[in-house]
Structures are given as structure tokens and as C-alpha cells.
Nucleic acid binder design. Structure first.
Length: 288
DNA sequence: GCGACAG
DNA sequence: ATCTTGTCGC
């Protein structure tokens, strides 16, 4: 598995190679999400510009019944880029993988898959446990994603092939990793109690190895950033997010993208909404 | 052997 | 990730 990760890292592109619609420059206005999705009354329905809701599982053990609503997804090349957020909720021996798609700051589709789990969680090998299930869910999505936001690291990984990079390379889809804690690497400065909008580079240290075929030094290479997406004035301190390139995105642009996708909460909206959706589906299954 | 260790 | 009540602060 580790060798496969080395190959994935070698195939990964850690420079900007995003499709048109991202504005060309660093800050992607077209993907910004200004209004936080209201989750106080359960998971909101996708917008009506794209009416599509599917339930599927490419790996069996699906508890949902196939059901459609209609098919009017109009993905013109002139539309803003589609950003998908992915998150999971765990059952006994299965996992609910939720995918939500945003376009122009609006939720346009949501879908999920329930897949069996066989591999345990092992730091550094997360993609082998959750990657398949995520692909199951993405396979049921009707719109074509332009960018995927994964829950976990991308380049900030022992072999520079975290789950965000793994998924991105497998689908050759631009992707970014958003983790709530640091797997490896070293922050340039102390990350505690920083103001909103603050960020500092995370550099490769002795625990990070170079991609296959490369023997040059990696120590000191910027593999991601600690990014303070949210901070309260007089309340409890919020820890920063650890964002890193998945595939076809640079470390600097990754920060801009995550920043643009945050709408008042610590987590970017795609991730936050996917998390709520995954939990909702899980509850539906448990309460039966 | 010991410590570190995404979700 | 998940198990779980209250509780601090705006």
C-alpha cells in the first residue's frame, strides 16, 4: 500500500491546473460561498436549478432504495465551477459516504452511498479504508465536479499521498485536503490563538519522504498550511485547519480556495454540509 | 524499544 | 471517527 502511495505522489500535480471558471488568478471568486447553509432544520434540499437526488452503493450493502426525482441537470460550460464536499459517518461495519455539490455558492445536488468496511483506520493509510467508499458515492453523482474538498490531508502526508491526493489522482480531479489536526510536517510558527484569516506554512520534516523517483531533499518543502478559518473574540479558542493540495492545486491556492469556501464556520461549507448529510443518513439507518 | 499518528 | 451532559460565553 505504501508503494502505491509513492506512485500516487509521483503522479500528483502540486501546482495549479484548475479548469476555466476559477478566474485564472489565485483567488477563485466563482466558487465562493458567502451564505452559510441553514442546518437548523435538518439537511436542506438541493437547489431547484439542478433537481437530482440519488441513493446508491457500488459496493453492496446498500440500505437505501434507488429513487430519482427528475433529470434536469444543466451543466453548461459557462456555469460557475462545481465544488463537491465529501464526508463520512460510520456504522458498525459500514460507512455512509456523503457528497454534496455546490455551484455558485448554492447546493445543487447531494448523494450518498453505504459501503462495507474491511480495513481498519491506520494513520497514513486512511485512503485504503475510506477511499473506495468515497468513490462509490461519487459514482452516483450526476453533475461533473470541478473540485473536490476532502476531509483529511492531501500532501501533508508521510508519502505526500493523503486521501485528498489519492482521490484526486485516481479521478484526475483537482482536489484539496482539509484536516482538523496535523498528521506530519512542521508549522513555521506557533499556531495557537491566531486571528481569523491567519495562516502559516507547514513544511516537510524528517517524517515526509519524496515521491517515487526523486531523491532530492524534501525537507523544508511547503506541503500545506495551518489556516485559521474561524476565531471568536472573547470565547474559547478555535484550532486552525490544516489544508494541503490534493491534486492539480498549489499549496498557496489551497488556502485561497478553503478561505473562499468558508462562510462563518470553522469548516468550509461543502465539508460542513456533507458532514450533516452523512449524519442524517446514518440516523435514518440506525433508527430502523 | 519509544514516541507520533488524518478519520 | 464514535461514545455523551452539561456548560461557558456572546
Amino acid at each position: 500500500m505504501e508503494d502505491l502511495q509513492r506512485e500516487i505522489a509521483a503522479a500528483a500535480v502540486f501546482t495549479d491546473d484548475l479548469p476555466d471558471g476559477f478566474g485564472g488568478s489565485a483567488v477563485p471568486d466563482s466558487i465562493a460561498i458567502d451564505e452559510a447553509t441553514d442546518l437548523t432544520d435538518g439537511v436542506p434540499e438541493p437547489g431547484h436549478d439542478t433537481v437530482q437526488e440519488r441513493f446508491g452503493s457500488a459496493t453492496g450493502s446498500c440500505t437505501s432504495s434507488p429513487s430519482f426525482t427528475s433529470t434536469s441537470s444543466s451543466t453548461s460550460s459557462s456555469d460557475p465551477p462545481i465544488v463537491v464536499g465529501i464526508d463520512q459517518a460510520f456504522l458498525e461495519d459500514a460507512v455512509v459516504s456523503a457528497v454534496v455539490a455546490f455551484r455558485g455558492g448554492r447546493l445543487v445536488e447531494r448523494t450518498h452511498a453505504v459501503s462495507p468496511l474491511s480495513i481498519p483506520y491506520i494513520p497514513g493509510l486512511l485512503a485504503f479504508r475510506e477511499g473506495g467508499p468515497i468513490l462509490d458515492a461519487l459514482a452516483t453523482l450526476s453533475v461533473d465536479p470541478d473540485l473536490a474538498v476532502l476531509d483529511g490531508s492531501g500532501r501533508i502526508h508521510f508519502r505526500q499521498a493523503g486521501i485528498a491526493t489519492h482521490i484526486g489522482v485516481v479521478l484526475d480531479l483537482p482536489s484539496v485536503g482539509v484536516a482538523k489536526s496535523l498528521l506530519c510536517g512542521t508549522p513555521d510558527t506557533d499556531v495557537d490563538g491566531r486571528p481569523e484569516g491567519w495562516s502559516t506554512p507547514i513544511r516537510a520534516d524528517g517524517r515526509v519522504e519524496a515521491p517515487a523517483g526523486r531523491t532530492d531533499a524534501v525537507d523544508g518543502t511547503v506541503i500545506g498550511h495551518a489556516f485559521q478559518s474561524r476565531q471568536y473574540p472573547n470565547s474559547r479558542r478555535v484550532n486552525p485547519l490544516y489544508v494541503s493540495p490534493g491534486h492539480r492545486v498549489s499549496a498557496a491556492t489551497t488556502v485561497d480556495i478553503v478561505d473562499a469556501l468558508c462562510a462563518g464556520y470553522k469548516l468550509p461549507e461543502p465539508t460542513r454540509v456533507a458532514d450533516a448529510y452523512a449524519d442524517a443518513v446514518k440516523r435514518t439507518i440506525v433508527d430502523s
